[in-house]
Amino acid sequence: MIASSYPKFLMCITPKPETFSRAECKRNPVQFFAIVSMQRSGSGWFETLLNSHVNVSSNGEIFSVKDRRNNISSIIQTLDKVYNLDWFSSASKNQCSAAVGFKWMLNQGLMEHHKEIAEYFNRKGVSAIFLFRRNLLRRMVSLLANSYDQYAKLLNGTHKSHVHTPEEADILSKYKPSINSTALITQLKDMEVITAKALEYFNSTRHIILYYEDLIVNRTKLKDVQEFLKLPQMVLSSRQIKIHKGPLSDHIKNWEDVNKTLAATAYESFLHADY
């Protein structure tokens, strides 16, 4: 028997459930979260890291299904199912769940209904984990390449947004998208505006702001996330492999045009950063 003086989160490290019901874990409060991000910003990789924690269940991009975000009523109904612990997926754990959530992209009804959703988050005690990319040019390359592969299906006729072997990453990275250099700066500014609006809309919600590049170079950021979710600290891991490695000049077909467009602008640093 664990002494009552133990911190509550330690009670969940080695649970011994008999029926795997929530009642057996009722002494441990569940933290609710939503990973708020944009496509091709590292959220898939980040979620696999979280799900490698024995006490975390993050249920994927549930609002990619349009029927679940048709209106605010369908959104609230879906949220209730997740946070009432009635959502079952491959991320569901037999162990005591200390944190439960999912991924939510900004273009999946979140911005259109931000007021009602922020009110729901605050009422239900849902914390937001904002995950963005600093290098928006790299995000654009990833978006275009992923969009191309949805039709080209370069991996033996199968489309994969994420890969687990260097060989698969090498095949996908061979495609070099062309970027509309005329519209490039406007598109980068639009991405920044969307990010700023999201942070403004959910400023009153308990949240943490993360950047993909920071997670890559500083794994102590993952400790910050676990602390934010009030989890027992664990080493987190993922099998996902980065697709576009090395300089961007290797991954953009019209590199000279892009380089000329962004040189001597606020976005020049995007040309040189590895992540």
Rank of each mutant, 00 (worst) to 15 (best):
A128F: 15
F228K: 04
Q240Y: 14
E47F: 00
E61Y: 02
I75Q: 03
E200N: 13
V36W: 03
Y83D: 11
D170G: 01
A128H: 11
L137E: 05
K174I: 04
A34K: 03
S97V: 15
L229F: 13
D86T: 09
K245T: 12
K81A: 10
V100S: 05
G60T: 10
S161N: 11
I243L: 02
I13Y: 09
H164Q: 12
Q150M: 14
Q39S: 12
V217R: 04
K66T: 12
L131C: 02
N156Q: 08
V65C: 02
H113R: 09
L184F: 09
S173A: 14
N259C: 13
S142Y: 09
Y83K: 03
N156R: 03
N203I: 11
F270S: 01
S237Q: 13
M111G: 08
A118C: 11
F270D: 08
I185G: 02
L188P: 07
N59I: 00
K153T: 04
T261P: 00
I241Y: 12
T19A: 12
Y211W: 07
V163P: 02
T205A: 02
E167I: 11
Q95F: 14
S58D: 05
A152V: 06
T19P: 00
S41N: 13
S92D: 11
L222V: 04
T195I: 15
T261S: 08
M1R: 01
K221Q: 14
L222I: 04
K81F: 01
F88Q: 06
L231V: 12
R139F: 09
K230F: 12
T205F: 03
L262K: 06
N203S: 14
K16F: 11
P17Y: 00
E47S: 10
L188H: 09
V225M: 05
S178F: 06
M11Q: 06
C25S: 13
G125L: 07
E116Q: 15
M234S: 03
P232N: 14
L210R: 02
N203W: 00
F102S: 07
S142H: 05
T182G: 01
T261L: 01
K124W: 06
I208R: 00
N84I: 01
V126K: 13
N146I: 01
A118L: 04
S127T: 10
V100R: 07
K253M: 08
S41V: 00
K16V: 12
E213M: 02
S4I: 06
I243R: 01
K93A: 03
H159S: 04
H164V: 12
E119V: 04
L184Y: 07
W104E: 05
N203C: 01
K8A: 12
L210Y: 05
D214A: 12
G109F: 04
G44P: 00
S237L: 07
S57D: 07
K124Y: 06
K160A: 10
N254Q: 07
K242Q: 13
E192F: 05
I252R: 05
R138H: 11
P166N: 11
D190Y: 07
T14W: 15
V235H: 06
L110V: 03
T182F: 02
R123D: 09
W45Y: 15
